[in-house]
Design a protein around this nucleic acid. Structure first.
Lengths: 359, 359
DNA sequence: AATTTTCTTGCATACGTATTCAAATCTGGC
DNA sequence: GCCAGATTTGAATACGTATGCAAGAAAATT
């Protein structure tokens, strides 16, 4: 299937437009270069000819000379979790607004992101957004020396030269602990995401801290790996044990929904009467009334905005200094967990957990 | 934010590698061109130097000379419906396997796909996949004259020069009608997708035909526009009326889930005891046990495979002749609709509706 | 060993654009 | 109508690669 000989029509070039308009090729180029020195008269001539011939500047050729592709690579290994499609959609909007384009890498196992990386580099992308995958250390270093900005989305790392955008996952985990303790729960479980992800670690850390502050040190653990199937299995395990926890914090909503399905329909457990479930992300299905998952929200639009901001900054300045933006979410209260006596407030039609004593 | 002067590191060129290896630039090029005439000895030398210098062929420059970008544009206005992220993931896999890359356009209103089109053309993409948006007639024509293959995914059109991949939506609609009639339902409703979409038209057409064959000509109608919010509104309307239908066919699962939520939680209607709901796509949430939507499946992987096949064919042959691939789905039976006495069979753990009398 | 045939190789050129530089044109003030 | 200055213009070049062509090297044939 390679080496095809199909002839694509050559396409109109700036020289052809130039000839048709009776000007030089430079003039055509300048017409389509914002801020270039060109008189309105010749500009008009060129535009007329361009329209007549159906000319469009060749972005490929332009990239070659400017050394700017105006392409941002977005790497998302999987899109199963609706959070990421939402991110993608917003990224599409924001990048388009900046006149950038989105080269998507998806549909591969998390492990083999390295071959993907080769492709990235070949297209001389102007920036890289890593959303549901990581990058081996030498690769991120290679980006740095190549002068390509890299932003981790919803995860972080210690390496310098790699920026990140996250929310206060540790605070979030702690807040969820507070909420569940205030709700009178006495035993707890945690169903984890990918254990290698910083986000998962931080959420658990905060959760454990928050519980410990009230004297609870025992947490039932399950491994969900951010995957629906794994989360289901973990839930079965946790719920069938002799001492089933009264409350489970699931590392994200995508898995929380699965856990709730297992609890209700496989075990006949009433949620929230017999079991409280709290998730993270506040993603679409969490809001659907069948689930109504109480969940820490992540300010998706602001996160995307920050991501694009960082990229644009680094691209225009040429300075690649790691920048870490950390945003805050809210604990959105719905019906999947028993409520505390106080602390739930109504704001703009959303119920949020905002206790007096905590920050 | 434009006109930045940030200096991206130049990057290693083939000439530099050539010099380092003591060969000509041509030799370097041939080393990285599969099937080119090069001795294994010099090839080895080049590869060694390339590795040492960290050389990667510049895809941009290559595109300029070959007139092939190895980029496929994928246009998906919205990703709210999980069906499309799933498609995207599979597309990512398949295109990567063919050594093609995916330039994604998303996050804009369906109407303004025309500015998007300009961008497409500037990058000289080798093919275009239109998944959740259409293209105005003159634009598809322009693609044809430019020699760029276009494939409509999950919708179709009469224009020649534009290929399409769909399933037998009309048959699907008819089968759903048969299923509901066999289930003993006497009154019916339809909640539509975007009225301009061929897919929506065909599904409704088949549904109406199937009902008519059994003497039912009255169908309650609602407009869901493939949007969750609109579907909810349509459901409220349809369910609060004086003669609420016993069975509703919702044009896709994304909306069916919303309709079910409204029925159960806003109206307290028992599904399927008091109301049957059937959807289309067999997408993730339809399978979740809280919903268990009975749904016509679309063979996503085969659809994507066909799409990529068509593109590769047309790219390599240079012949852009419209090709229309039409695949078949199955009616996957779950718990959202009352069952007919006969015709539901168990295959590979899935329950399918396969009545004896129909094809 | 001489000759033909097949492989390799380097040179030169082309792809379509942006940009430098010097020449040409225009502007306004006298 | 003349000159300094500002603006506009075109010629030439560069970006990094692929490829036709002719020459050279190696292999195969006689």
């Amino acid at each position: 299937m390679d080496g095809g000989v199909g002839a694509k029509k050559p396409g109109v070039t700036s020289s052809q437009v130039a000839e048709h308009a009776g000007v030089s090729q430079s003039a055509v180029s300048r017409t389509f270069t914002p801020g270039a020195s060109i008189s309105s008269k010749t500009r008009a001539k060129v535009l007329a000819s361009a329209k007549e011939l159906g000319y469009r500047p060749n972005a490929i050729a332009r990239s070659l000379i400017t050394n700017r592709s105006r392409i941002i690579a977005v790497v998302m290994a999987y899109l199963e979790n609706l959070f990421y499609p939402d991110v993608l959609e917003e990224l599409g909007r924001r990048l388009a607004a900046e006149d950038y384009h989105l080269l998507l890498f998806t549909g591969f196992m998390d492990r083999d992101s390295d071959p993907v990386f080769d492709q990235l580099m070949q297209y001389r992308v102007d920036g890289i957004i890593l959303a549901s995958t990581s990058l081996s250390s030498d690769l991120s270093e290679e980006c740095a020396t190549a002068g390509i900005p890299v932003v981790l989305f919803n995860r972080t790392t210690q390496r310098d030269a790699v920026s990140s955008v996250t929310t206060r996952n540790r605070d979030g985990g702690r807040k969820i602990a507070e909420f569940l303790v205030a709700g009178g729960h006495k035993s707890f479980g945690y169903i984890a995401g990918l254990e290698s992800s910083s986000t998962n670690r931080d959420r658990f850390l905060g959760f454990a801290e928050g519980l410990q502050a009230h004297g609870f040190t025992d947490i039932a653990l399950g491994k969900g790996n951010y995957s629906r199937l794994d989360a289901e299995a973990a839930a079965r395990d946790m719920l069938s044990g002799p001492n089933r926890p009264e409350a489970i914090f699931v590392a994200n909503d995508h898995m929380a929904v699965a856990v709730m399905d297992v609890a209700r329909h496989e075990f006949g457990i009433a949620v929230p009467e017999q079991l409280s479930i709290v998730g993270y992300d506040d993603v679409g299905p969490a809001r659907w009334t069948s689930y109504g998952i109480t969940s820490m929200s992540q300010p998706l639009k602001k996160m995307v905005e920050a991501t694009v901001d960082i990229l644009m900054d680094q691209i225009t300045s040429g300075e690649i200094e790691a920048e870490h933006r950390i945003l805050s979410g809210e604990l959105v209260v719905r019906t999947s967990a028993r409520l505390p006596k106080t602390g739930v407030v109504d704001i703009d039609g959303r119920k949020l957990y905002r206790p007096k004593d905590t920050a």
